[in-house]
Measured scan of single mutants.
Amino acid sequence: MAAGGDHGSPDSYRSPLASRYASPEMCFVFSDRYKFRTWRQLWLWLAEAEQTLGLPITDEQIQEMKSNLENIDFKMAAEEEKRLRHDVMAHVHTFGHCCPKAAGIIHLGATSCYVGDNTDLIILRNALDLLLPKLARVISRLADFAKERASLPTLGFTHFQPAQLTTVGKRCCLWIQDLCMDLQNLKRVRDDLRFRGVKGTTGTQASFLQLFEGDDHKVEQLDKMVTEKAGFKRAFIITGQTYTRKVDIEVLSVLASLGASVHKICTDIRLLANLKEMEEPFEKQQIGSSAMPYKRNPMRSERCCSLARHLMTLVMDPLQTASVQWFERTLDDSANRRICLAEAFLTADTILNTLQNISEGLVVYPKVIERRIRQELPFMATENIIMAMVKAGGSRQDCHEKIRVLSQQAASVVKQEGGDNDLIERIQVDAYFSPIHSQLDHLLDPSSFTGRASQQVQRFLEEEVYPLLKPYESVMKVKAELCL
């Protein structure tokens, strides 16, 4: 049975990233139509530049190519590739079939990587351009969430054990800070992308030097003109047959890092959902379990974690691919890159769409948070109580021993009897502590235990987050809708 299948058929496997999760716009960027249309555009740009620099290419040939950029006979191309065992030459023939007058000058002087690699770089750039505003929107939604809850005390956790208090907004800023680093890295790697350009079979530009009869300047002009037509500021000066596969490492490393950030955020949300302090959106008709109707599973956060793990592992592909590119190139890269580049971007696209949807509907339960604080705060307040007693004339050592005994009794009630923490009640009825009984409410005010959390939130948002989001103001209103 021949390899390949009808990918629109229910009898043929289709990647869930495309069929179930990723956005239509990201799927289109990695589609065959987008790819092969870009090949034709690159052939047109090459012909236009070659004509401008004096090669015998007519206006009629150029116009014929322009008129057929979208006229792609995919069936013919597939048949040609089956016959020739070469995808680029299959599309040269297919393009030439609908451009008979231009057929002889299509791909003039070029090698397969002229269309293959340059198209990949265009796709990487455009895919990054799709991700950047999506990530900015996630940051914006979380920034709104953090600002609104900047002063809401909550129990902090280290080692997932109760620690000092923080605020809900401050905790959210930990998430935002990681995503801001990801946004900066995505922008950097996007701006650092260079075009492969017009380089020939081993990167020496020998074929173009021959076409222009040894004119170095025209060869350099050709490279520059096509690079500018493709919208790049610069091209690699040095290439082998391909652009260095280190570029793929750079791009997928940034995406993998984004995956790590999203995994951490969504894990926190899942843990908070278990504590009943916070939940992701839950639709009115949504079913959490087929057997347990009360369940409210954090399905979206779980999906993000599941896909983020996949995204983090994909960076190993370009690392290994770059390491086995012998001399000017081997074909070890080809099949692998067809999979890992598309999957990385479709996965990143999915987790950003999902995280935006989550961040637009996060639900906080202040009463649950308050109750958990009441359970733990008495123990945390013991040092403040000791200091207040010393100020009232008591002995630190005597007070410490009193607190120690009462704390152990209260802990026994919590752990052995399943009761509430009654340390404060014990202190309130103990005559030894009568000098500070009137101060206990103040000493137990949760806001006095959150330090500068709310001020940190305000400063972080104003100095770091809002300036970073400013270039994306025009796209901030787009909502994230999930079908599944």
Rank of each mutant, 00 (worst) to 15 (best):
residue 40 R to C: 02
residue 427 I to F: 04
residue 55 L to M: 04
residue 398 D to H: 13
residue 398 D to C: 14
residue 367 K to V: 10
residue 238 I to P: 03
residue 447 S to Y: 08
residue 446 P to K: 07
residue 179 L to D: 00
residue 407 S to C: 07
residue 403 I to M: 11
residue 228 E to P: 15
residue 323 S to A: 06
residue 107 H to S: 02
residue 32 D to G: 08
residue 221 Q to R: 08
residue 40 R to W: 03
residue 372 R to Q: 03
residue 467 P to F: 00
residue 113 C to F: 11
residue 12 S to F: 07
residue 226 V to L: 12
residue 293 P to Q: 11
residue 361 G to F: 13
residue 370 E to L: 07
residue 312 M to F: 00
residue 215 D to V: 09
residue 307 L to H: 14
residue 309 R to W: 08
residue 64 E to P: 02
residue 72 I to G: 06
residue 28 F to H: 08
residue 328 E to Q: 00
residue 309 R to C: 11
residue 403 I to F: 15
residue 59 D to T: 03
residue 135 L to I: 09
residue 252 L to V: 10
residue 392 A to W: 08
residue 95 F to R: 04
residue 448 S to N: 08
residue 313 T to W: 07
residue 282 F to H: 07
residue 326 W to C: 01
residue 469 L to N: 12
residue 421 N to I: 07
residue 257 S to W: 10
residue 258 L to N: 11
residue 320 Q to H: 11
residue 5 G to I: 12
residue 36 F to S: 00
residue 443 L to K: 00
residue 311 L to A: 14
residue 365 Y to M: 06
residue 417 E to H: 13
residue 272 L to F: 12
residue 347 T to V: 11
residue 149 R to H: 01
residue 371 R to F: 13
residue 484 L to F: 14
residue 362 L to H: 14
residue 182 D to H: 12
residue 217 H to T: 11
residue 429 V to F: 15
residue 476 M to F: 07
residue 69 L to C: 15
residue 350 T to V: 09
residue 311 L to P: 10
residue 54 G to Y: 15
residue 117 D to C: 02
residue 85 R to G: 08
residue 161 Q to V: 01
residue 105 I to Q: 03
residue 360 E to D: 15
residue 79 E to K: 15
residue 145 F to R: 13
residue 418 G to W: 02
residue 155 L to G: 02
residue 290 S to R: 06
residue 180 C to L: 07
residue 74 F to M: 02
residue 7 H to C: 11
residue 216 D to Y: 08
residue 449 F to E: 07
residue 37 R to K: 11
residue 284 K to T: 06
residue 180 C to Q: 12
residue 96 G to E: 06
residue 198 V to E: 05
residue 471 P to K: 01
residue 149 R to E: 04
residue 286 Q to I: 02
residue 370 E to M: 09
residue 88 V to W: 02
residue 327 F to D: 09
residue 197 G to W: 00
residue 170 K to V: 05
residue 404 R to D: 09
residue 202 T to M: 11
residue 470 K to E: 12
residue 220 E to K: 07
residue 319 L to E: 10
residue 169 G to W: 04
residue 155 L to Q: 02
residue 375 Q to I: 10
residue 44 L to R: 04
residue 326 W to F: 12
residue 287 I to W: 08
